[in-house]
Nucleic acid binder design. Structure first.
Lengths: 344, 344
DNA sequence: TTGTACGCGTTATCAA
DNA sequence: TTGATAACGCGTACAA
């Protein structure tokens, strides 16, 4: 059983004894085709089960209806939520989404950007690796006039549209909450030194301390390298050993905060009575562990959806004016108070 | 600053005063081009920073170097691991991956299949929704001779290559373990009634009971609909209320098992002393909650990677022989014994 | 060893 | 209102 070959405009034209041009126009609803002809064409197309050859369309129009997204890693609650948001919105607008990972490595990220460019995607959404700033390959996207949106992990040095949260404010809110709960000596297990969001969260932490006239002690801040569960555990051990009177922890992300909780639980240190803990991002698991983890609700899905919509705007803008919008959307975050930080 | 247009074979040919054909051949390493000419072409291509227009290549070759994957949902530890595996292997072989979700809905799934077909992807990987069996759109993939691999959530009624685990055996092992730990009355919070893997796990549960001459009580088995945390909690409540002497739980997946643990913890029912619990899939969180959850290690990443490799084989096969391989790869699973089921 | 010429399916231009 | 024709960039059978 050989596969019958796909019907084409030409086939329809031959069957109806009219020109390919007319068929094309009829199917695309051009006005300069008689109603009768149009109907005949449409009927025949139906009958033959015609669908346009998207390869040919792509070739002609130079558009692929495909966008690319590059993120550090898929298996990560926040990023998979972002992907979900992007896909869902893209789907609604008939775009496909190609997903690539940087694994937090610059070289990878570079390669992925080049791949997407060579694939001629209609636009690119990116969340930067921990090492990236104003890399050449990012500038290349700009120079090549490819619609571009940075999301969450951005660089201030790249001029393009962005979707972010106010990390500094969110961190401030988190630490402020701990202080309001009575914490006097709060440690911060922060992210790596380079990424903007880790910096901003750290600044938020400091600002909250300052706001309440609590002295800042750099020894109470330890940066993660891998931002993992194990680091949360280890750094807490380190801090609590040296400063047993620490009574609050603010973690760069929930995963780390769970490591903190694990250590505290093991040491039978009461949470939240003796030590209160708050994380960041609202990973799924933080709502099902015990004690339930207080955290910052970071709207991954919405960020993804907004990123696509903004990218779409960029596409329009580039097509019409040739210029970028360079719009930044800042989404709201809330403190989710749960058991790990609630003191009556 | 207008965007300079991309260099083409034609441009190179003009610059060198030779034909497009020769340029094409030279760049593709054909033997019938003199070494000198080849070098000149390559140099010029370098100089102009030539890259083939992938849209034109796709159009000519009828290949896109893109595959599609349809899964129930991205934000799900197992599936995101699968995606990771697929992407990583695809990446290595220079393929792109388009990801679509069915949200467990048949109509969605159908639409996504149609989209991928119209996009002319080189192959499709799918994990079926809970409602799907031998749907028409799946048969369409077969009929259209599109390379196809089903993964994890498969249908026995569709004749194609598959990557699976032995769900029945894995479930048997899990329940067998509980029995070996001394459980006499084991409940099973199972998956929905349709999907094959839920059926198989249920059969494994029954088989293990039978193996130890433990009577099967259908009242101790409750099927989930949404397979969520809340159902784990509620169904455990229901079962423990009616049968307080139940001393073991086997859950369709870790998410549900965490719901079970939450209820038991709340009721101060000791785990694992009074009730032992085992889940399925080894979600990340099961290693960080307390007590740590015993589970079945389901190798999502490997399944994804294998699925891509198998799809690649299918592509080769279809190209050469025109026939499908219809190979099934069954991956091993292990029981991960952790605190929730460990008795001395 | 090199080049001519055509085709892939669609769309755009221009003439009829 | 319709159609002839060219064009997109590349690949390839065939001729030179």
């Amino acid at each position: 059983m050989k596969q019958q070959k796909e019907p084409t405009l030409k086939l329809i034209a031959e069957k109806l004894n009219i020109s390919v041009t007319t068929v094309s126009k009829a199917l695309k609803g051009y006005s300069d085709v008689s109603a009768v002809t149009r109907q005949r064409v449409i009927d025949m197309a139906d009958q033959l089960n015609y669908t346009p050859n998207s390869l040919a369309v792509n070739f002609r129009t130079k558009e692929t209806r495909t966008i690319g997204i590059i993120i550090p890693e898929v298996v990560h609650h926040f990023f998979s939520s972002v992907i979900n948001g992007v896909i869902e919105e893209a789907e609604r607008q008939n775009y496909f989404v190609i997903i690539l990972q940087s694994n937090e490595k610059k070289e990878m990220e570079k390669r992925q950007v080049e791949l997407l460019i060579s694939k001629k995607v209609d636009g690119i959404i990116m969340s930067l690796s921990n090492q990236s700033n104003d890399e050449d390959y990012l500038k290349m996207i700009i120079n090549k006039k490819i619609p571009f949106v940075l999301i969450d992990k951005i660089s201030k040095l790249i001029d393009c549209s962005k979707v972010v949260i106010d990390d500094k404010k969110a961190a401030f809110d988190a630490v402020n909450h701990l202080i309001n709960m009575g914490c006097k000596k709060i440690a911060h297990i922060r992210g790596p030194l380079n990424p903007q969001n880790a910096i901003d969260r750290f600044l938020g932490y400091k600002a909250a301390l300052a706001h309440h006239n609590i002295p800042f002690n750099p020894e109470l801040v330890i940066p993660c390298e891998r931002v993992c569960y194990e680091e949360g555990y280890e750094f807490t051990k380190k801090i609590m050993t040296k400063y047993p009177d620490v009574d609050g922890f603010f973690a760069i992300t929930d995963l780390v905060a769970v490591g903190i909780l694990t250590y505290l639980n093991e040491q039978q240190i009461k949470v939240p009575e003796q030590v209160a803990v708050i994380g960041f991002s609202n990973w799924f698991m933080s709502g099902v562990i015990s004690p339930k983890l207080s955290t910052i609700d970071q709207p991954g899905f919405t960020m993804g959806a907004q990123a696509f919509l903004l990218l779409k705007e960029e596409m329009e803008s580039m097509k019409t004016t040739g210029e970028r919008l360079c719009k930044t959307i800042t989404l709201n975050t809330d403190v989710l108070v749960r058991a790990s930080s609630k003191r009556n």
